[in-house]
Write a protein that binds this DNA or RNA. Sequence first.
RNA 1: GGAGAGAUGGCUGAGUGGCCGAAAGCGACGGUUUGCUAAACCGUUAUACGGGUUAAACCGUAUCGGGGGUUCGAAUCCCCCUCUCUCCGCCA
Length: 433
Amino acid sequence: MLDIKLIREQPDHVRERLAARGAGDDAKISEVLDLDEQRRKALMEVEQLKAERNKVSKEIGALMAQKKTEEAEARKRQTREMGDRVTVLDKQVAEVEAALNAILLRLPNLPHAKVALGRTAAENPTVRTWGDKPTLPFKPKSHIEICEQLKLVDFARGAKLSGSGFLLYTNWGARLERALIQFLLDLHTSEHGYTEVAPPYIVGRECMVGVGQFPKFEDQAYAVQEGQDEATMGKLYLVPTAEAPVANIHREEILKESQLPIRYCAYSPCFRAEAGAAGVGTRGMIRVHQFDKVELIKIVKPEEGYDELEKLVGNAERVLQLLGLHYKVIQLCTGDMGFASAMTFDIEVWAPGQDQYLEVSSCSNCEDFQARRMNLRFKTESGENKFPHILNGSGTALARLFVALLETHQQADGSILIPEPLRPYMRADRIPA
RNA sequence: GGAGAGAUGGCUGAGUGGCCGAAAGCGACGGUUUGCUAAACCGUUAUACGGGUUAAACCGUAUCGGGGGUUCGAAUCCCCCUCUCUCCGCCA
């Protein structure tokens, strides 16, 4: 959520920054300014009225104590009317506030000044690349072919169980998935300073609002209903990412400055309806309704936000380096960034069988945008309450990592060579052909 | 799922209609005292919004789990909801 004071004081700056990300909706900002004005006007009136009512009420109390009943009754008649007026105005304020909030919750974050201007993914600058595209001495197979040959994933039965976009990992495939999860958690906790947490996979809607998923992207989530009780619909959702529960751990808290930075690392499955994406890359494992991911979340002091973002990207990159996978880091341009983010770096790993790069990580600094929504603050040494920066990054998404790993490390004989750091987890150095 | 108890400030805990943004204790912070530590003593100690100010000071409003109601006035009375605890049932 944007700071209403910022919108009030620098509306043109806000308009300009929103326009930069292609969300420049002048009408909305004007509406916000108008509602804000209305709200404050009504507030002033009602508060003044309440102050008077409180005053007279106190007097009534004093009169009652002195047993001056008639005088007290006279005052009561006087304040009764004020009470009715207060009720009306209170309702008015609540309505204006609700209207204002509805807009504010749908306005995306402002991109950081250093983010490249652009409209689409085609304009995302590449920041760096690591390694080279592997040159295989044979025509690389697609992960789909590999999975079928080595029986790592049973696509047909996954679809039978839950519909298209759901995977049934089998055998070495299941073990590889589990090994990767554990490898990632161990790496980030023991080498990168994160604290492991295991969150719920179903969250209340406030969590979704807190991270900026809702209300704008409500159609992308799986909603959960308890049995036949339709009244429970809209209360709980399957997590689209561990960010939803983990970033909200300290929602509505006031942290001590000494507690920061907080760094959490969490595995969770991720459930995405992918509404509107039907038919786009539906074959294979690249776009699915459920995938595993290890997520990194940081809550930090504002002045440390961008240093921490750099480190976060580095933590995710380390994964690919250890697994011997070629990748590039790109910065998302203003037009391609996610709703809550002020700056985002994506990591794209090379998948030889696809002949393309796959996004396996997205690392963002949302600054105080999410902290505002979830009312998460920290108290500075001087006693001031401030909103921290909240960062999130995939470290990393698994299904696509799985794809890149198979396609990169496939051997001429059809087996898959397991990268050194993963071998203890696989208890094998290759998946046999 | 059934029955009962409860939810008050950083914590413990008092408060059953006005004198209560809230006693007391603990903790924390500042100060006095002190060779050091400890103790003692004094003081301070929530949040948001609005007004005000260069910034403060300051003023107002709201907040005692959440929402609604009664009343001139609600932590206190009434209704609904959420959560926690105890017992029973069920269950991985």
